[in-house]
Write a protein that binds this DNA or RNA. Structure first.
Lengths: 194, 194
DNA sequence: CCCTATAAGGTACTCGAAGTACCGTAAATT
DNA sequence: AATTTACGGTACTTCGAGTACCTTATAGGG
């Protein structure tokens, strides 16, 4: 009966917590269940994370570390749609529920909230700036739009749909609305014909 | 010892819950404390609301029913800044914490989430469309921008700051950034000089 | 190769809060 | 006045976070 220690055990705990998150969501994430699934006990968990919220954030990180690649379809609209669809898939149930759950269970711990913010927020700004930069080069977007707050408007609006409504997946129509009514007009060098 | 009944008692419970929300936030909203503060007991609460989350939403409604009036400064930028500042004051601590707390404690009850959404989301679309409509009349905004999703972009971005970061108040600089980098360019008939 | 420090496993506990169950009693209804 | 309804009081069950303490395995140094 080899007894796991250190990093190996830690990884097993995180994986167990991530599995529980996917299966039941954050509100149902109990330390006992995580310990049981990981084949250990609560002590081993509390030695590493101070409370349930911290474990939840660590486990969420495990879920969303998928690399986000900047698409290159040759035109801005295609790139933006591709990115949003990619992120829509990525956020689709149960991750949106998990994120929404975490966002509150943590309200009183700004440090954890900041950690969580990096997981999905401005962490993705780079990709958006890349896509937008190519569009500027093609004359599809104005250079002044190359600012983080502008570049990430689309994903912010999409995420907003998840977080403030209870949705588990956002309709394609909503995505197109965000792109055609908001994002493209916002960054465009000149207004579209419509 | 007159014993309160019906609507009178109900209002007392809601008010007590709202007071507790302001004082301690949603995570610390306990049924015992609410009952105690309202001078009653948990039975009277559970006869009216099925669980803590439902009571929380009802109490939050009590907090945010302040009327939102459409400012009219004569130019779009002034109107938008006035609206955002008004909402910023309104969302400032502790309401943002409360909202963030509610948004999660409710994740598994889409009906409550929908109720909550009306409290702050598209419920305010009317005001934004009013302000934007006047701007269109003055030639400051293009008619195509008169769509709910476009009109409410500013408040959506502002609320996003509250909900996804742990902030209790948003800096004025952020508000100006939202207005000058995103909102005005988005609705403008033609691009600003910058 | 043993000794010791460290970290794991096991178990049992406290504490707080959600939600339930009953019962006696005031108030509305007839 | 009789009856139904709803409030007040209290005690209870249940569940999960976090803690305490002890035993046992492992790593690493002598």
């Amino acid at each position: 009966m080899t007894r796991r220690r250190g990093a190996e055990l830690e990884q097993a705990i995180i994986q167990a917590a991530a599995d529980e998150l996917v299966k039941s969501g954050y509100p149902a994430l109990t330390m006992d269940k995580v310990a049981n699934r990981a084949g250990t006990n609560k002590n081993a968990i509390y030695r590493r994370w101070p409370n349930r919220a911290a474990l939840g954030v660590a486990a969420y990180r495990q879920l969303v570390d998928a690399e986000l690649v900047a698409p290159d379809t040759g035109e801005l609209r295609g790139d933006v749609l591709a990115l949003l669809h990619q992120l829509n898939r990525d956020l689709s149930s149960p991750k949106a529920d998990i994120l929404r759950g975490l966002l509150s269970g943590i309200g009183d711990e700004p440090e954890l909230l900041a950690q969580l913010h990096e997981q999905f927020g401005d962490g993705g700004a780079g990709v958006w700036l890349t896509v937008l930069g190519r569009a500027v080069g093609r004359g599809e977007a104005r250079p002044a739009a190359l600012r983080p707050r502008v570049a990430t408007v689309a994903i912010t609006l999409l995420r907003n749909e998840y977080v403030t409504r209870g949705l588990t997946s956002v309709d394609d129509g909503v995505i197109e609305e965000i792109v055609d009514e908001v994002y493209l007009p916002l960054v465009a060098g000149r207004q579209p014909a419509s």
